[in-house]
Design a binder for these strands. Structure first.
Lengths: 189, 189
DNA sequence: TCCTTTGCAATGCAACTGCATTGCAAAGGA
DNA sequence: TCCTTTGCAATGCAGTTGCATTGCAAAGGA
């Protein structure tokens, strides 16, 4: 077995380049040659690691999901043991909002993929799972009689805040104020 | 002055075709020839009415905004005079959710434009105005001490519900349940 | 040592892109 | 009647796209 190369590493290297291109110029600017140039490799190498463009896109989508997963996990980890429910909720949701430049870039890519999957339902399955899982988790932390609907609403609020943050409609302060107001409402009883 | 033709009508005809293409295959499938074919006209004619593709995109974006504006106005119009605030809010927001097939198609286009403008900040100005106007209007209808933040949150919730409806994460029933639960919270006091 | 497997670069190709250009028919005004 | 303006179709062009193909160097196992 010749020339051992870390396949996974190469693929993530390329996917990172893809995300840089997509964050700056949108998914429609993502082409084999463009991504290759951004990654500083040859177009042939991209083809070597992804047989088709769709395969590359799917991999990049998985990376986006992964990053969000990591963000949430780390944010929770930074809290001590047994944090109060409200703080835990705020931390998780804030971790998913595009508040700094890095998460804004990721958010732009995620938004592009949302539009992308809205037209290719085949690729949307995993996003659906993520959402359902989050709703379930949030519901477990909420008080009140209407946990399921409240949790679905809270997650939708997060998504909307993210969209408006990316679009420049809301500032970070506005978004966080809206989040806190929402938590005030949910924990009022 | 020869051959009188309704310019505006031709342009909306073409923009409608563009939206059909974008709703089915995404904005990246929108090309002069593709749109022309969908409109049943020649590519030359599209060029005649839109000097550049960007001009055509801008026009289509304006059509999307317009349709939403009309939806809200009509929904409000269907209510009698002086409807209670909560009903008015629910009606307005529900009118903006992609609940039937037509508004789903429009929603897919709108979502594509959100991603599009997130990368081309120049084209996002009007969207920003729309949002600000909506927040102001919603705030005027809400009770409670935190109207601005509550209104921003409510609008974000609407946007997020829209995104999840398009992505198949939420059913229409779930989305409406979340909306009603939110209104329950806001009008609890 | 040979030889197979792998990693990668280069090239080619047909299809497509946005846009400029050209040509022409029809509709009026002069 | 002529002639200018307009609406539109057709063609051409340079650039880009995804992908297939080809060639070759390096790395090990036999």
């Amino acid at each position: 077995m010749p020339k051992k190369v870390d396949h996974q590493a190469r693929r993530t290297l390329i996917a990172d380049a893809l995300m840089r291109v997509a964050a700056e110029q949108g998914l429609e600017a993502v082409s084999l040659r463009h991504v290759a140039a951004a990654a500083g490799v040859s177009a042939g190498m991209v083809q070597h690691y992804f047989r088709t463009k769709d395969e590359m896109m799917a991999f990049a989508l998985a990376v986006v999901r992964d990053r969000n997963q990591v963000r949430v996990t780390e944010a929770i980890g930074r809290l001590g043991d047994d944090p109060p429910a409200r703080l835990l909720l705020r931390t998780m949701i804030a971790a998913l909002l595009p508040l700094d430049e890095q998460s804004r870039a990721d958010g732009r890519v995620a938004l592009a993929f949302l539009a992308y999957t809205a037209v290719r339902p085949a690729a949307a399955g995993e996003l659906r799972d993520d959402t359902a899982q989050m709703v379930g988790f949030l519901a477990g932390l909420l008080p009140g009689p209407d946990r399921a609907a409240d949790a679905a609403g809270l997650l939708a609020l997060m998504e909307g805040l993210g969209v408006y943050l990316l679009g420049g409609q809301y500032t970070a302060e506005q978004a966080l104020a809206a989040l806190d107001a929402q938590l005030d409402l949910l924990f009022a009883g």
